[in-house]
C-alpha cells in the first residue's frame, strides 16, 4: 500500500500505472491545446482572430512554439547557481503532475476509480503538493543571479503566503459540509445541490486565490513583464522557460479541476456514467474559460493592492464564511 494513510479505494498496481499514464497523456494532450485556445480567445476578446497561420485555424501553433523553444539554446547566466538553476523549472512540473493525481474524473466503475488516487486527505494533499511549485519559483529566481529574478521570486513567496491562507479557509466550508477531506467524497456529497450554491462566497474566494496561485492576471505580480521583465523567468530560455509556461497551464487545469470537483458537482451530470469524465472536463473548461476571460479583462494589481486584497478582504471574508458555515452545519 502506498504510504498515504488510509486510501478510500485502491486497485491493483498495474491498473494504477495504466490510470496514471492515461491521465498523464490526456492532460499533456490538453495543455498545448489550452495554450492555443487561450491565445485565440484573448484574440476574440480583442476583436481579432489570434493565431491562425500554422495549420488549419492555427491549431498547430503549439507545435511551432514547442519546436521553437526546444531548438533554442538552454542558456545559463554566468553567475547562476547551476544545479539549482536547472532544478528550478523541474519542481513546479513535479508539483503540477502530483496534484493532478487527486482530481476525480468519475466514480468507481467496473472496479476502476476514475481518478489517480483518492486520498482521504485530498485537500491537504493538494495544498502540500501545490506549494512545492513555489520552491521551484523561488529557487529558480534566486539561483538565476539576477535582481529581477530574485524580486520576482520574493513576490511569489509573499503572494503564496497571502493567498494560500484564504484559499485554505475557503475550502474549509466545503470540507465541513462534506465532512471529508477526500475529493471523491466531496463530489458524492453534492448529490442534491452543488456546493457553489451554499458556498458561493467560498467559491469566489477560492477562484480569486486560484488566480493568485497560478500567477495569472490580475495577480501575475511575480512575472510582471513591465517592471520585472518576467520576474523569476528573466534568465530562463528555451525549454526551461517552456516548462514554467507549461506549469502555469497545468496549474490552471488543477485549480479548475479542484474547483469543479468541490463546487460544481465534479463528474456529476445527466446521461450515462461513462460520460462522467466528459462532464468533469466540460466543467473544468468552463472554469478555464473564466481564467482566460478574467485575463482579457482585468489589469494587473499593484503590489500593495494585491497584499491589501489578500489580507484585508479575502482573509476576513473567508474567516466569516467558515464561521457562518460552521454555525449552519452545527444548527442543521
Amino acid at each position: 500500500m502506498l504510504p498515504l494513510g488510509e486510501v478510500g479505494f485502491a486497485e491493483a498496481t498495474w491498473i494504477m500505472v495504466v490510470k496514471s499514464l492515461v491521465i498523464f497523456a490526456i492532460i499533456f494532450g490538453i495543455l498545448p491545446i489550452l495554450t492555443v485556445v487561450e491565445r485565440k480567445l484573448i484574440g476574440r476578446f480583442q476583436h481579432r482572430y489570434g493565431p491562425n497561420r500554422v495549420g488549419p485555424f492555427g491549431i498547430l501553433q503549439p507545435l511551432a512554439d514547442v519546436g521553437k523553444l526546444i531548438s533554442k539554446e538552454s542558456f545559463r547566466p554566468a553567475n547562476a547557481i547551476s544545479t539549482l538553476f536547472v532544478l528550478g523549472p523541474l519542481l513546479p512540473v513535479l508539483s503540477g503532475v502530483l496534484a493532478l493525481a487527486i482530481i476525480p474524473w468519475g466514480d468507481v466503475q467496473n472496479g476502476v476509480g476514475f481518478y489517480g488516487i483518492d486520498v482521504p486527505i485530498g485537500i491537504l494533499y493538494f495544498f502540500a503538493v501545490g506549494s512545492i511549485a513555489f520552491y521551484g519559483l523561488v529557487l529558480g529566481g534566486w539561483s538565476s543571479g539576477s535582481k529581477y529574478s530574485l524580486l520576482g521570486a520574493m513576490r511569489s513567496a509573499a503572494q503564496l503566503i497571502s493567498y494560500e491562507v484564504s484559499m485554505g479557509l475557503a475550502l474549509l466550508g466545503v470540507v465541513m459540509m462534506a465532512g471529508s477531506l477526500s475529493l471523491v467524497d466531496a463530489v458524492h456529497a453534492q448529490g442534491q445541490v452543488w456546493y457553489i450554491v451554499p458556498q458561493f462566497v467560498g467559491f469566489l474566494i477560492f477562484m480569486l486565490a486560484g488566480f493568485a496561485e497560478t500567477n495569472r492576471t490580475p495577480f501575475d505580480m511575480p512575472e510582471a513583464d513591465a517592471e520585472l521583465v518576467q520576474g523569476f523567468m528573466t534568465e530562463y530560455g528555451g525549454m526551461r522557460f517552456g516548462s514554467f509556461l507549461l506549469v502555469e497551464y497545468m496549474e490552471i487545469l488543477v485549480v479548475s479541476g479542484i474547483a469543479a470537483a468541490l463546487f460544481l458537482g465534479g463528474w456529476m451530470g445527466p446521461g450515462p456514467s461513462f460520460l462522467d469524465p466528459i462532464w468533469m472536463l466540460v466543467k473544468m473548461f468552463a472554469l478555464v474559460f473564466v481564467f482566460i476571460w478574467v485575463r482579457a479583462t482585468l489589469p494587473r494589481l499593484r503590489y500593495d493592492q494585491l497584499m491589501g486584497l489578500g489580507w484585508k478582504v479575502l482573509l476576513p471574508l473567508a474567516t466569516l464564511n467558515v464561521l457562518v458555515t460552521a454555525i449552519l452545519v452545527v444548527v442543521t
Partner: peptide, 21 residues
C-alpha cells in the same frame, strides 16, 4: 466594476473579430 469589465470583454467576444486578414 470587475463584473462590468467582464461584461464588456464578453461583448467584444460576441461581436467577433474585425481583422482584415
Amino acid at each position: 466594476e470587475t463584473l462590468r469589465g467582464l461584461k464588456t470583454t464578453m461583448a467584444r467576444l460576441i461581436e467577433g473579430p474585425l481583422t482584415i486578414e
